[in-house]
């Protein structure tokens, strides 16, 4: 397959949203969902504003939203594949005259691009929110805002850098569901949930800290990410593993489909 076709495939996957199952739900149901999301966002903003007014919020704590990213990635990867079955389009998708590796690869790549896009949006929203709080609530300096914005960069960098392994793993797990090896699916899911929790506990030390971002503006600026070298090596290793996961998923789609 040439690069142009692959790009078109990625573009097609990128644009694909929603599924027939969700479209078939009643309108009120769909608006209900929208309302739910809006309420959740409002509640978040409300809580943050409340603590800010009482002087109990440090702006960089807004990055706490990043805790939701790994779960979002898992859901995104799974939906990417499940959509073909929910729409009844898997037959079209899987009989395209391109290798299974390019087909699943395009899904993976589109999901990764979405991760980048969502990260950028989150970055802008949190930065704006920090700025607005500073203007309206008071008690924060301009430097607090800059430090917060700076602290967010390496954090989202880590999210984007480590997203391939999570996305590929969730694509792989979603694939298992449609193969003759379906029985292993639950065990693997228990694995991924456990893995994510361990990841959270162990990863704290590698996350960029607010104080490092603060020091960035001082006389002797230090690195933004502790153990940067280890993190980068880990990232590269995770990419290799991500590629393996995608390869396994491609193999399963080629040899083990159960439809």
């Amino acid at each position: 397959m040439n690069w142009r076709t692959f790009r078109k495939l990625v573009h097609h996957e990128w644009k694909l949203k929603g599924s027939r199952r969700r479209l078939d739900r009643s309108h009120t149901h769909r608006y209900g969902r929208l309302l739910y999301v809006a309420l959740l966002a409002l509640a978040g903003i409300g809580v943050a504003t409340y603590f800010a007014i009482n002087g109990q919020l440090e702006l960089h704590q807004l990055w706490g939203v990043a805790i939701g990213f790994p779960y979002m990635l898992v859901v995104m990867g799974v939906l990417m594949l499940r959509r073909e079955w929910e729409n009844g389009t898997f037959g079209w998708w899987l009989t395209l005259p391109y290798s299974r590796l390019s087909l699943i690869g395009a899904k993976f790549f589109a999901a990764w691009l979405r991760t980048v896009a969502v990260s950028c949006v989150v970055y802008v929203v949190i930065s704006l929110f920090a700025g607005i709080l500073t203007l309206l609530v008071g008690g924060y300096s301009a430097e607090d805002v800059w430090v917060t914005m700076l602290a967010g960069l390496p954090l989202l960098g880590i999210v984007i850098g480590f997203s391939p392994i999570i996305l590929s793993l969730s694509l792989l797990l979603a694939t298992f569901h449609y193969t003759t090896l379906r029985v292993f699916s639950p065990i693997l899911w228990i694995g991924i949930i456990g893995g994510l929790s361990t990841f959270y506990n162990g990863f704290q030390t590698f996350l960029p800290s607010y104080h490092m971002a603060q020091r960035f503006f001082s006389a002797q600026p230090g690195p933004l990410i502790p153990h940067l070298g280890a993190v980068l090596i880990g990232m590269v290793i995770s990419w290799v593993i991500a590629y393996l996961f995608i390869r396994i998923a491609a193999y399963l789609l080629e040899r083990k489909l159960s439809i």
Binding site: T5, K8, L9, H12, L16, K17, G18, S19, R20, L23, N87, G88, T89, F90, G91, W92, T95, L96, P97, Y98
Partner: peptide, 26 residues
């Protein structure tokens, strides 16, 4: 190939479906 019980991507228009064909079917 028209798969058994196949459907099409619900958000596409007919024209978009044909453009999909033009992009991916040799």
């Amino acid at each position: 190939y028209l798969p058994d019980r196949a459907r099409w991507y619900p958000r596409h228009t007919a024209l978009q479906a044909f453009e999909w064909g033009a992009s991916f079917l040799p």
